[in-house]
Design a protein around this nucleic acid. Structure first.
Lengths: 192, 192
DNA sequence: TATTTTATCGAACATAATGTATCATAACTT
DNA sequence: AAGTTATGATACATTATGTTCGATAAAATA
């Protein structure tokens, strides 16, 4: 059981960071800003976290893990609907983490996560054809993951004018298109 | 005619910044680091630049403008070959600007530039059908521009194992694929 | 409830970066 | 050769950093 004081301190520090991100942007925030806002002693901060990044990561572990599970659940099909849905349900947090004023910690985390998933998805089919440029495919998987996170950023920054389903649809299309290109499958020919 | 001392100061400050980026990463660099490395007085720095970002932007205006012209020359077809070629010919600079240790100034600049070009490219065809979700198309253009810059980052970070032509090919394909998709939407809306 | 454990605060500290200002000097232009 | 100006050196007040310490309040435990 974690000491109630500890829970309280960590929570208020996390909240202070989030509110500060929305105000002045992650990069401009100092430790001093955070402990002033949270009304917490300087030594107390360092008793819990080493720096800003760690506070953002550990302090919002819950949100991060849940969001991670949303995208990992649909591993086989890589369906991002639950992912975007959960973002929409936590708008303030998402804005702080993925918006333009947010830091790069969570963006990098999810970019790498999605890139891995996309690669895993492709690799199932790679066993068949071996002539693929694996390194270039890695680049492309990473690039697509990056563009999906970028879509997310634009979406939350723009107050989410589309549904989570629409956003997931666009994301899935990107992955499918690369898939079609790599494996020489003509998606268009299927609709004809 | 610009004073020779001014030219010398600006050049050495720019070089100091680039070398520092490769060593410790853009974000960790202080003004103090720069003037120490350049052996330039503190007041001299501020006589020329307001901050790090401005030094990076103005100090390497030449490289930026040339690189910009490379991608703008091929406006009609959006051919990135010259773009990646020029990057390859300035490897150290590119690594400092687009590598993982680099800042976000130039990355943001070229992302926006490419996104605009892509949109301009699409808009030619958009005149025909007006039912297109223009906002979503903007998102996608931005996302694709982001992924192309990400490809660039991975490429330079990986010591450029592919030719500029190959990189341009992949970039162009991404744009073409979205183009095909948009065209697809047009067809569907017409048949309904 | 009484006792022990521990998280927090407040204060102090040395170090470092910031942005500004002044002035003598060296380097440049004309 | 004379006038102009960019630079370096120095100083300054302000702010942030990361660490340490003891007193105190709040928690867990018996």
């Amino acid at each position: 059981m974690i000491d109630r004081r500890v829970q309280k301190t960590r929570k208020i520090l996390s909240q202070a960071l989030v509110s500060l991100i929305l105000e002045k942007g992650y990069d401009a925030i100092t430790i001093q800003d955070i402990i002033d806002r949270a009304n917490v002693g300087r030594s107390t901060f360092y008793a819990h976290f080493e720096n800003k990044d760690q506070l953002l990561l550990v302090g919002n572990e819950n949100f991060r893990h849940i969001l991670k599970s949303k995208v990992e659940d649909g591993e086989l099909t890589i369906d991002f609907e639950f992912f975007f849905q959960h973002v929409a349900e936590n708008y303030d947090l998402a804005l702080a983490f993925f918006g333009k004023k947010g830091g790069h910690v969570l963006i990098d985390f999810f970019r790498d996560l999605i890139a891995d998933l996309v690669m895993k998805h492709y690799k199932i089919q790679l066993q068949v054809s071996e002539k693929i440029q694996l390194k270039m495919l890695n680049y492309q998987a990473d690039a697509i993951a990056t563009s999906i996170i970028r879509l997310l950023t634009l979406w939350v920054e723009d107050q989410m004018p589309f549904s989570a389903k629409e956003m997931a649809g666009v994301s899935n299309k990107m992955i499918k298109q690369l898939e079609a290109e790599v494996f020489n499958i003509k998606v268009v020919s299927q609709t004809h």
